[in-house]
Design a protein around this nucleic acid. Structure first.
Lengths: 228, 228
DNA sequence: ACCTGAACACCGTTCAAGT
DNA sequence: ACCTGAACACCGTTCAAGT
């Protein structure tokens, strides 16, 4: 009896009584659903069940599925943009920002798809963050726009494609095992049509998406700093 | 009566008798439907009507919607990969290839979305084409994979995002009018949160997606050639 | 071998009715 | 003001039946 000191709280544990529905709770549940069951799993009925209501209730807080997906995307991206760059060298700040987005999209692959659909406002925030570092790199003003938009496009574009690749592999498969399989497939391609691809199959096997991603950033940064 | 020389052809116009269904015709009709009514308009029922059959007939030639979309994407991308690079300087060949893809995706914006979903084989073809030019640039072999995959990711990623932007603007709106509107909106952003974005609103106004796209390629090419 | 079209299970969205 | 849940219109896919 003394064993499990179950000092009952004075007030009953609050029964997990249904908090009221809210845009915030809905978007949160949507993100969870997207993460666990994928884009096809996000259904107003499934979402309603998870929130223990009817599907119609959701429409009181959200105009429809499009807005719901946009809000979910926004939530994830906002989380990834949390860091603070003050005091960091511009190149390093850009790498950190890029990796934050890369990891967020890798963890929530459906965000990659959404980026192509909506997501106006998060993109603007990315643009601003990148742009400030471009300024800090002392790039001539005439090149600011090009430099910032190239970087942003690369970051979001590549992160999105990486997520797509990840989705293709995923089914519990081990990473190196997967890469090995693809590399093996490359080796069996037609030697004439795919001479180059075959020649880098080995590099694929020991390749690291994340490192490759940063390497691409550095290529662009190299091009940008050459502008001054 | 002589006015409209309606010289009736000897043989009756061939009645446009129903050619038999085929994977090719189905994919062609799907591309047309996607172009004209967008991704939401591609329906087995709509497609069947356009081909004057029932929806079930399509399943004899195609396993489902996923394969249909992949095939449509493949068809467009294959068309864009038509050119021949032999005899062109590598940098120029890469720009041409990139622009071909950019224009194709711009003309068929739904391809941008699909790139994030499937499209394994067309990506491999892009990779090979880009890779050969990377070799021609005399990049050290250890960097082949990184250089080629950075370029490909940038090309497909940016082209896809451009298509998404285009879709946002499209409704018949004039291009410069549209850019002017966005630039004006940028000018009204919070000066503290969006200092950089506001400062390049003018550059946005006179900016050219296509030129910007190539400028980004050149940045990467700059970084790549710095590797040797 | 190929096509037909009704039928099935499921979806986003609406809305009268409730509290 | 907010929630309920049946109902509507529509979707991808299947399949027995036809030719």
């Amino acid at each position: 009896m003394a064993r499990m000191e179950r000092m009952a709280p004075k007030t009953r544990r609050p029964e997990r009584r249904q908090e009221p529905l809210s845009r915030e709770r809905i978007v949160g549940a949507a993100v969870e659903l997207l993460d666990s069951v994928g884009e096809g799993g996000l259904t107003f009925r499934a979402l309603a069940e998870r929130l223990s209501t009817g599907p119609g209730a959701i429409y009181w807080h959200v105009t429809g599925k499009t807005e719901l997906l946009a809000a979910a995307t926004d939530a994830v991206l906002t989380g990834a943009l949390g860091g603070d760059d003050t005091g960091t060298a511009p190149q390093e700040a850009i790498r950190a920002l890029a990796l934050g987005l890369f990891d967020a999209i890798d963890a929530h692959p459906w965000v990659g798809t959404q980026l192509a659909h909506t997501a106006q406002s998060p993109m603007l925030r990315v643009f601003e963050r990148v742009g400030r570092q471009v300024q800090a790199l002392r790039v001539p003003e005439a090149h600011w726009f090009t430099a910032a938009s190239s970087l942003m496009s690369y970051i979001l574009g590549v992160a999105g494609q990486n997520a797509a690749n990840a989705r293709r592999a995923r089914p519990g498969m081990d990473r190196t095992e997967f890469l090995g399989g693809v590399a093996a497939a490359w080796t069996e391609l037609d030697p004439e049509q795919y001479a180059f691809t075959r020649s880098v199959a080995g590099q694929l096997r020991e390749h690291d998406d994340r490192a490759e991603f940063v390497a691409g950033i550095d290529l662009i940064l190299g091009g940008i700093t050459a502008l001054r």
